[in-house]
Design a protein around this nucleic acid. Structure first.
Lengths: 241, 241
DNA sequence: ACTCCCCCTTGACGCAAATCAATGCAGCTG
DNA sequence: CAGCTGCATTGATTTGCGTCAAGGGGGAGT
């Protein structure tokens, strides 16, 4: 009855047994190539809430794929303000922005218990020259990342931004086989606000308004989308259609 | 105004003779490998002001490197509003955001007379598996693009955004061997405003204020940076230090 | 040189959302 | 279970910047 939180592929699972393979790095690889990818993937113990995978300015060694739970990546500006760049669901990669500067530019933190596959980037580069499909998928995922960031930049009202945020989460949950109409917001309001460049008070007021207008039902972190169509209209469809 | 099919130009400048090689795709390639890259680069006649290189929704075939002049890329949202995603200087690539969706998501337009190297992406993928240095540089440039897009998302005042914009241009001109303290703004105020999600009036007022405070001198499009340090302080150094 | 047009500038005003401030509420801990 | 702590909500107020409106140039064409 309560909303589902995406849960694990257990940490011992290889790519070939992982349900996320159709979203993640192995897309397009045959069984044999997938085994070669598995060989360079490092398993890791799950992270606890607020535990960091890496921190800004540390030397870049690995990129990460979310195996279970959720992570956020945040940068801090010159005045020391933190900005949350993104939230990362199972099957999504993070750490890609560290390739160019060769050091992490963000800090990656677990929202609740969560786990990753860690991939040595140098090994991944080498393997990518041998497996064209892997290279293609890597470039494709980076391109997607560019596009995602760019679409965050378009000028929207607070209302549009929050509606689009909800819809983005919805569609990403759906891709992963979870309900696209009911899910838990794993991050606090403050983090949503920060990510969308808004005040937490505004988030609160908008959630209430959406609820009053029958678009959603929300209590605490349990979000229920009641009218997807109107929500999409409201969002200007910028993120999910 | 419609997309132009590149035509062979007699004055085609090869990568090995191009002064932009140290910024562009050939970074890290030896002479022999650079020649292999040259083989897949298509030459094109210069574009005229406001002429489009490609338009949104066209099928993705090529990525582009700016050879001379400047281009802007713009997307249009669900309400039909145009948003300028970026300005592209010589040695910079554009069209990378089309890799994932396999169609262009933006329209690329020349600001004044400008020219490109067009690179068939499928050929580039193939060549990248054979030339590890090329693969590395391609991934590195995509990573840089991710970072650039992300840093546009941090919450800043209009003042900070404009200061950061000026400094970004300054540092990119410097990298290319031009003055970092005096250069022409090749785009109209309206385009700067659009790119930064501001009203043109605000741009105008801020330029005036920066001038009154002795940070810059500007008349028409001729911009002179008088106090780089204070400008960086103002910008929160988010884009250039 | 005159005029048209486009862009830029300048000023007045209004609004969306930030900020400030206070209260409510849930989960811990002892 | 009482008290503490941190997050969320709600209301009052402020403000940065967008919008509206009205002038100024500068360049292109006649």
């Amino acid at each position: 009855m309560s909303a589902q939180i995406p849960v694990a592929s257990p940490s011992f699972l290889k790519c070939s047994q992982c349900s996320l393979g159709k979203l993640c790095l192995p897309v397009g690889l045959d069984t044999q190539d997938m085994h070669r990818l598995e060989e360079i993937i490092e398993s890791a113990a799950p992270y606890q809430e607020n535990e960091a995978v890496y921190e800004a300015d540390q030397p870049f060694k690995r990129i990460y794929a979310v195996k279970s739970g959720m992570f956020k990546t945040q940068v801090s500006d010159a005045q020391g303000n933190e900005h949350i760049v993104g939230f990362h669901l199972p099957g999504e990669l993070f750490g890609l922005d560290a390739i160019y500067p060769q050091k992490y530019v963000s800090t990656a933190v677990a929202l609740g218990t969560a786990s990753v596959c860690a991939i040595n980037y140098s090994d991944l580069e080498d393997l990518s020259t041998k497996l064209p499909s892997l290279q293609r998928q890597l470039l494709s995922l980076m391109s997607k990342e560019v596009h995602t960031s760019q679409s965050m930049n378009i000028d929207q009202t607070a209302e549009q931004k929050l509606a689009a945020f909800i819809l983005t989460l919805s569609s990403r949950y759906k891709q992963r086989g979870y309900s696209d109409t009911r899910f838990n917001l794993l991050m606090p309001r403050r983090d949503i606000a920060n990510h969308l460049n808004m005040a937490p008070e505004t988030i609160s007021r908008l959630f209430k308004r959406f609820q009053n207008e029958g678009l959603i039902a929300i209590q605490r972190n349990d979000l229920n989308i009641l009218d997807m169509d109107r929500l999409q209209t409201l969002a200007g469809c910028s993120s999910s259609c």
